[in-house]
Write a protein that binds this DNA or RNA. Structure first.
Length: 405
DNA sequence: CCTCCACAGGAAGCGCAGGAGT
DNA sequence: ACTCCTGCGCTTCCTGTGGAGG
């Protein structure tokens, strides 16, 4: 491979991108793009905005609890309102400060507090401070700002599940001691059961205002896609049935707009890579497979070794028939570990791992009683077999196994 | 109707890592 | 540098259970 050859390849790839006949602006379809206008969410936006508008009058806005399934526009709506609030406050010269933290990435109390403090202009060392010290600094900072602070905690369920609700409690209680300032919390979650996991005091305080985001239906999804597509694609780059198909597919999955946009983006990428000038329904079908593959790959490859071995065992057992029981899986798994010279985990642990794989959607496990023949779990493969297999083979140890037996 | 299979799944505790406090 | 604390993956020990076959 000569230097020249490589340059030619690069030249070809790069000029191909700039010459795209499909995408005008691909970024308009990525999950972190916040659109200027959110259709079908006026009521929710109005409610959040009216709660927050208290800040512009110089009083503390109520805490808001936002919930809805994934891809229903929660994050986008809140970001939109927050942005508007900041602009208005600047215009009117009213001290309002906002902070956005995604608790999926920052799922410890320390990091959440650190992020809030940083976004308010405080300095936080990497590590070394105790939570109590951090809290004290945040308190001082907020007091010094002498204004309304609005903190958005996105995917708050991750924080609560990992750390419990004491950080929330501390943030809420802070108001009791602040004089010139206040803190309001907007908690966003897609886990509807989260509320039940909270301490009653936190629950009532966070729920001062509740806003629900219902799923979109197919018609609404279609209109959202139309709007976004006109920003992202060149005129005529989309086949007529592309958007309705994406909308229909996503509507089937509890009206997830993110899923719909992913499909559309992936379909566009596939068409572009193939050098086509028009996206067709075949591209959408392919995109569906690709997204599924990506998801399975991501989940499977991050599995710990024994979970992979158990998954491989299930895969083996279900090649000739369609289901396997816990006992059979444990035996097959034992054989595999012996082959690799590893210890096995206990059967008790295996039942838990099977349940975990079930929750991830890779397999389905159903408890059945077969009378005289005992009570067990009937396990079937749920996700695409090929995708699982390729992801498993990525692991060297497991790759060896596929050759043998 | 009772039995007893083949597990499910709860409870407690252990060793370890990593992070906080001192 | 050291102890203390916490969460995680796992083991040990355990009680519970739907229903086919006796």
């Amino acid at each position: 491979m000569s230097e020249k050859g490589l340059r030619d390849v690069l030249e070809e790839v790069f000029s191909e991108v700039t010459r795209s006949r499909i995408f005008k602006d691909r970024d308009k379809l990525t999950p972190d793009y916040v659109p200027e206008h959110l259709p079908f969410r006026e009521e929710q936006i109005r409610r959040i905005a009216s709660a927050l508008s208290q800040a512009l009058r110089g009083s503390r806005p109520n805490n808001i609890f936002v919930y809805g399934l994934t891809g229903t526009g929660k994050t986008a709506a809140v970001k939109l309102v927050i942005r508007g609030l900041s602009e208005k406050a600047r215009e009117l010269r009213i001290p309002v400060f906002t902070s956005y933290v995604n608790c999926r990435q920052r799922d410890t109390g320390y990091r959440v507090l650190a992020d809030i403090l940083e976004s308010l202009g405080g300095k936080v060392p990497f590590t070394g401070l105790s939570i109590a010290e951090l809290q004290k600094r945040l308190f001082k900072k907020v007091e010094a700002l002498n204004g309304r602070v609005v903190v958005v905690l996105d995917e708050i369920d991750f924080l609560v599940k990992k750390q419990g609700d004491d950080i929330l409690y501390k943030l809420i209680r802070m108001n009791e001691e602040l004089s010139g300032s206040s803190v309001s919390i907007i908690g966003i979650t897609n886990d509807l059961n989260l509320i039940e996991m909270l301490d009653p005091r936190v629950k009532s305080s966070l729920g001062e205002e509740e806003v629900v985001f219902p799923p979109y239906d197919a018609v609404q999804l279609k209109s959202i896609l139309d709007e976004r597509a006109s920003l992202a694609f060149y005129d005529g780059a989309l086949g007529e049935d592309v958007i309705p198909l994406c909308a229909a597919l996503a509507a089937r999955e509890h009206g997830d707009a993110r899923k719909a946009l992913d499909l559309l983006r992936m379909a566009g990428e596939l068409a572009e890579r193939a050098g086509k000038s028009k996206v067709t329904r075949e591209d959408v079908e392919m995109a569906r497979g690709e997204l599924e593959k990506d998801k399975v790959y991501e989940v499977v490859s991050s599995l710990p070794l024994h979970a992979k071995l158990i998954l491989a065992s299930i895969l083996d057992l279900t090649t000739s028939r369609d289901s396997a029981t816990t006992g059979e899986i444990f035996n097959e798994y034992s054989k595999k570990t012996a082959l690799l010279g590893l210890e096995t985990v206990t059967q008790r642990r295996v039942t838990d791992i099977i349940s975990e794989l079930d929750m991830m959607g890779l397999i389905s496990a159903r408890v059945v009683s077969r009378g005289r023949y005992g009570k067990t779990k009937v396990v079937k493969i749920q996700a695409n077999r090929k995708s699982i297999e390729t992801a498993l083979k990525e692991d060297e140890l497991i790759e060896h196994l596929f050759g043998k037996d």
